[in-house]
Amino acid sequence: MTTFKLIINGKTLKGEITIEAVDAAEKEKIFKQYANDNGIDGEWTYDDATKTFTVTE
């Protein structure tokens, strides 16, 4: 398992979430669903070196 981080830079929601997953593709799906469930629609980036997804509205 690898630890992945999501950084949220939303208009109404900001924060960080850290979760373990098998791979980045699995985690991306979970993070995007979390963002969608919380009304966050923005630009996504991924840094493989730090295993960090960022979504910015």
Rank of each mutant, 00 (worst) to 15 (best):
A49N: 08
E20S: 11
A25V: 09
F53H: 00
D37K: 07
W44R: 00
Q33W: 08
I19N: 01
G42K: 03
T12W: 11
D23L: 06
F4W: 05
I17G: 02
E28M: 15
N38I: 13
I8D: 00
K51P: 01
Y46K: 01
K5H: 12
E26S: 10
Q33C: 12
F4P: 02
K51Y: 09
I17Q: 01
N38H: 13
T12P: 05
M1F: 12
K11Y: 11
T50K: 03
M1A: 08
I17A: 02
A24F: 11
T54R: 05
I7G: 00
T45A: 06
Y46D: 00
A49W: 05
K5N: 06
I17K: 01
T54M: 07
G42F: 10
Q33D: 04
F31E: 00
D47F: 03
G10E: 02
I17W: 13
F31V: 12
D48V: 05
K32W: 12
E57K: 06
M1K: 12
Q33S: 06
T54Y: 11
D37G: 04
N9S: 07
I40C: 11
K14N: 09
T56C: 11
T3N: 04
K5D: 07
A25W: 12
K29T: 09
I19G: 09
G42I: 09
E20I: 13
G39D: 06
T54H: 08
G15H: 13
A35E: 01
E20Q: 11
A21Q: 04
F31Y: 03
A24V: 13
A21S: 08
D48G: 03
E20A: 11
A21T: 10
I30P: 01
E57W: 15
K32V: 07
Y34L: 12
E20H: 12
A35T: 06
I17M: 05
E20V: 14
E16I: 14
D23T: 10
T12G: 11
T56Q: 05
T56Y: 10
K29V: 08
K5F: 14
D41G: 08
K32I: 11
G10N: 04
E43T: 11
V55E: 03
T3C: 15
I40R: 01
E26N: 12
K32S: 05
D23V: 06
G42Q: 04
V22Y: 11
G42L: 09
E20L: 14
E16V: 13
E16M: 11
D37T: 10
D37F: 06
I8C: 14
Y46R: 00
D37P: 02
K51D: 06
G42C: 13
A24D: 14
F53N: 01
E43S: 08
E26K: 05
I30V: 08
N36I: 14
E26T: 08
I17N: 00
T50F: 02
G15Q: 14
K32Y: 09
I7M: 04
W44N: 01
E28R: 07
K11N: 09
K27F: 15
I19C: 15
I7V: 10
K11T: 12
A25P: 10
V22C: 12
A21D: 04
T52Y: 02
A35Q: 03
I40K: 01
K14G: 05
Q33T: 05
G42P: 02
Y46H: 00
Q33N: 05
M1H: 06
G10Y: 14
T12V: 11
E43D: 10
E20K: 11
T52R: 01
V55P: 00
T45G: 03
N38F: 14
D37I: 09
K14V: 13
T56D: 04
E43I: 13
G10F: 15
Y46F: 04
D41L: 13
F53I: 03
T50H: 03
D23H: 07
K5P: 02
N9F: 13
E16N: 04
F4N: 02
T45R: 04
G10D: 01
I40L: 07
A25I: 10
K29Y: 12
V22R: 10
K5E: 04
K51Q: 07
K51F: 11
I19T: 02
K29E: 10
L6F: 14
I8H: 01
N36F: 14
T45F: 08
T3D: 03
I19S: 07
I40N: 02
F4K: 02
I8F: 13
T3M: 10
Y34I: 13
I8Y: 09
W44V: 04
M1Y: 13
W44L: 03
T56A: 04
A25S: 10
K14I: 14
Q33M: 10
E20W: 14
G10V: 11
V22P: 12
T2S: 07
T2Q: 08
T52I: 05
T54S: 05
A49I: 09
K27M: 15
K27H: 13
T54L: 05
D37Y: 09
E43V: 12
G39C: 11
G39L: 07
N38E: 04
I30A: 05
N9R: 11
